[in-house]
Design a protein around this nucleic acid. Sequence first.
DNA 1: GGCATATTCAACCATCCGGTTGACGATCCC
DNA 2: GGGATCGTCAACCGGATGGTTGAATATGCC
Lengths: 108, 108
Amino acid sequence: MSDPLDAIFAALADPTRRAILTMLLEDDMAVTDVAAPFDMSLAAISKHLAILTRAGLIAQEKRGRVKWCKLDPDAMRLASIWMQGFGQFEPVNLDAFERFLAAELDGA
Amino acid sequence: MSDPLDAIFAALADPTRRAILTMLLEDDMAVTDVAAPFDMSLAAISKHLAILTRAGLIAQEKRGRVKWCKLDPDAMRLASIWMQGFGQFEPVNLDAFERFLAAELDGA
DNA sequence: GGCATATTCAACCATCCGGTTGACGATCCC
DNA sequence: GGGATCGTCAACCGGATGGTTGAATATGCC
């Protein structure tokens, strides 16, 4: 009934969660390590991670007693595709193009 | 103090507001006309439009007693650029590349 | 077994959000 | 002027959100 974009954009609306995603861009991390830089209880971070997981933005995998968090690109891509529908209002965006190319080449 | 992305993503998280943005893709509209297809009070739509305006996703201009709403692409572009930072996790994504090009060319 | 570590659960709290209704201010038009 | 239309404001309501704390559940290690 509810659009997955609801959960994706809602998850992205919180600065703590966006910061977590940015951290995960560097490397996969355990929950405790994700929580370390934040001035906030571990339980709060655990909730944030649950929200990111429900939105499909990250995936969590338990190995031993440690739960590893890693980015899951599908949800972000879905949101990005939705937004591209509005791209026709942008003047030709060479900056974005360069970033796109750089990202693609880096990933190759 | 608060990141503009907070307001942008929060605004995009609501399906009514995303629908409004899609409608405005067709044409600029008056508040009453925006409200027409929704099963919801005019006041509720007015609030949604205020949220979209505060996020910078639309601009409102009053001409006579009618307030016109139109897309304002800057905010969406900001969000889109933020998301592109996560593209490197996609395997070389030709689909996305084609969509990117199509959107850019369409806008040209 | 028994203790330390990693993470979640449960209950609670304050605040925000999305909706309603009714009154109000502006503007158009006769 | 006065009535109809356009839109917002204010107060209210229920439910979601983001945080806390303390207890509970795994798991690893000696």
